[in-house]
Design a protein around this nucleic acid. Structure first.
Length: 559
RNA sequence: UGUCCCAUGGUGUAAUGGUAACACUCCGGUUUUUGGUACCGUCAUUCAAGGUUCGAGUCCUUGUGGGACAACCA
């Protein structure tokens, strides 16, 4: 699809309109402004892709700016984690910025606003201020301190800054309109006293600016042209513009805030509070648990940056509420991994298969292609012998025509090996199959070019040689929630929808070549799915996470 | 009893007054040494009622439904 024919979204339309109306492409500048108070999740990933994607589209810079105005909640470790996540997605920011770098400028502007009669110090309790604020349907009333003199305001504000007052004794408010329909315009708070050390400015500041006062001015300082945020900030736009009005100079860029609907993914939660609850309740092992839709969790699960970017691009952007089906995400994951992952053979639920007419001590090294999608990935050797493991579900003593796998009297191909015929099986007292017997056709070796090897058989099984098999731990992950939208039920807590079977740990039998895999590497276990090496792996034991299964039309047929 | 935002197949998004389309899902088929991939096909869409217009998913009005707004959070 060429750019000229590609449909634009409303965000791009806004930019295009501005360019048409005289804004120069050279001044375009965007930003991604996270608060460093938690880990980024799939929703943030979409926002990152949106802003950095615009930077790529217009070949213009994008800043990473930490909105760090609340030392009570923010920590340096989140700053580091967020940078890692953005880099992992493959984006490079132009400037690394912090709202805290603008504290002095913000303070100076606030002083000027006091002098201009646009801001005042209020000395009431939080409760009093709240009660005067009114409700969405009733106007507020003016604070008794609203008309303090400029001198008194200046002195008090200076005192706040110098730490002469405790928290909540005084605050600085903008003087706007207590009767506004927009509650955010009812003399919003600009500064409060916070007696906590800030992760960057330490104890230099006793007062901290609020979001509304900080955000637009930060955009202005960085000369951001377009400041995109989620819909919940739509009512803030009026205030964003009012604050900008107090400081903009006509020869500078005036940033424009526009809002889009945040993109939700089914079967997940993304609020930091809920994510934290999952961690604290021990439902998951941590913020980077592979079941979490945090970026760190997705990374550990084996998601690729491209799969996330492609997903974000494909779901588009709009202004209506939405819940994107997890299938979309998994489609892009499989689509990417199919191209990138090598194939290996690993038996998840092993049962012994004895090839009764194969020489007892013989071992053959068979050639196996690493990828059917990409021949340049080459071949590896896989040992073949008389005793193998195959998947328990791949054998039935008897089955109907639709069962393409191994059954008594019928032929099936062992991937990269021979064609075998089912002969019977051994069982324990309980009737469980303990050993399957089959015979092989010595002329049917894969790649030998013989007529027998070219024979068409319907089923192909993966396998590993029992004597050469490497036991590995495999963590089978499923969706964390049993319903598409766990947190929209007003009656029920989202924790009630946690999937009790979201993790199953098994020991699987891997082909020897898998011993060389490195932490983080993803491979396809042929016929089973994509799996990546977890950091919990040691020299003695590999641990795999199931990233995602393959599509399985047989499972649907069989059920 | 306020102000504001939103409404297109099951899901997500296009169509910018001119043939309602694309992707995912579902279902079916072809190919296949992965019941994978690839390819082909089927089903299915403009919240309602008025109005403007030669022509409305799009503009207007009124409803209906959903959402946001009363943190010294962002």
């Amino acid at each position: 699809m060429s750019d000229s024919t590609k449909a634009t979204n409303f965000i791009e339309d806004i930019i295009e309109d501005d360019l048409k109306n005289g804004l120069s492409t050279d001044v375009l500048r965007f930003r991604f402004p996270p608060e460093p108070n938690g880990y980024l999740h799939i929703g943030h990933a979409s926002a990152i892709c949106l802003n950095f994607g615009l930077g790529e589209k217009y070949n213009r810079p994008v800043n990473l700016r930490f909105d760090d105005t609340n030392p009570a909640k923010e920590e340096a470790k989140y700053v580091a984690a967020i940078q890692k996540d953005v880099e992992w997605l493959g984006y490079q920011w132009d400037h690394l910025c912090y709202a805290s770098d603008y504290f002095q400028q913000l303070y100076d502007w606030a002083v000027q606003m006091i002098k201009d009669g646009k801001a005042y110090v209020d000395s009431q309790s939080s409760e009093e201020i709240a009660s005067q604020k009114g409700t969405p349907t009733e106007p507020g009333v003016d604070s008794p301190y609203r008309n303090r003199s400029v001198e008194e305001n200046l002195a008090l504000f200076e005192g706040m800054k110098n730490g002469e007052y405790g928290e909540s004794e005084h605050i600085l408010r903008a003087k706007i309109d207590m009767k506004s329909n927009n509650m955010l315009m009812r003399d919003p708070i600009m500064y409060r006293v916070v007696n906590k050390a800030h992760h960057r400015t330490g104890t230099d500041w006793k007062i901290y600016p609020m979001y509304d006062w900080t955000h637009g001015e930060s955009d202005y300082i960085e000369q951001i042209t377009h400041s995109f945020c989620t819909l919940e900030f739509l009512p803030h736009r009026e205030l964003y513009n009012w604050f900008l009005d107090q400081v903009v100079e006509s020869d500078k860029i005036r940033p424009k805030q526009r809002e889009f609907a945040r993109r939700n993914v089914s079967h997940t939660v993304t609020s930091k509070r809920k994510l934290q609850k999952l961690v604290q309740a021990g439902i998951v092992t941590g913020w980077d648990d592979p079941r979490m839709t945090t970026i760190s969790g997705l990374r550990r699960r084996g998601y690729t940056p491209d799969s996330i970017k492609n997903f974000a691009a494909s779901i588009g952007i709009a202004r209506r509420e939405n819940i994107v089906d997890m299938n979309h995400l998994e489609f892009h994951l499989r689509d990417d991994l199919n191209k990138k992952a090598d194939r290996v053979m690993c038996v998840l639920d092993p049962v012994k298969l004895v090839i009764t007419n194969y020489p007892d001590d013989q071992v053959e090294l068979l050639q196996a292609e690493n990828s059917q999608e990409d021949e340049t990935r080459g071949y590896r050797e896989v040992p073949f012998s008389k005793e193998l493991y195959i998947e328990r579900e791949d054998y039935r003593e008897e089955a109907n025509k639709k069962f393409f796998r191994l059954k008594n009297g019928k032929e099936v191909r062992l991937k990269n090996g021979y064609i075998i015929k089912g002969e019977g099986c051994l069982k324990d007292e309980a009737g469980n199959i303990t050993e399957i017997h089959a015979t092989y056709d010595p002329d049917s070796k894969s790649g030998s070019g013989t007529e027998a090897s070219m024979r068409r058989v319907k089923g192909t099984l993966h396998w590993v040689s029992a004597a050469h098999a490497v036991p590995v731990e495999v963590r089978l992950y499923d969706r964390l929630f049993t319903v598409p939208s766990p947190d929209t039920d007003k009656e029920k807590d989202f924790m009630e929808f946690v999937n009790p079977n979201s993790l199953e740990v098994i020991t699987a039998m891997a082909e020897p070549a898998m011993k060389n895999l490195k932490i983080g590497e993803t491979v396809q276990f042929q016929r089973m799915g994509y799996f990546c090496v977890d950091p919990d792996s040691t020299d003695d034991k590999l641990v795999f996470n199931r990233t995602v299964t393959l599509r399985d039309t047989w499972a649907k047929l069989d059920s």
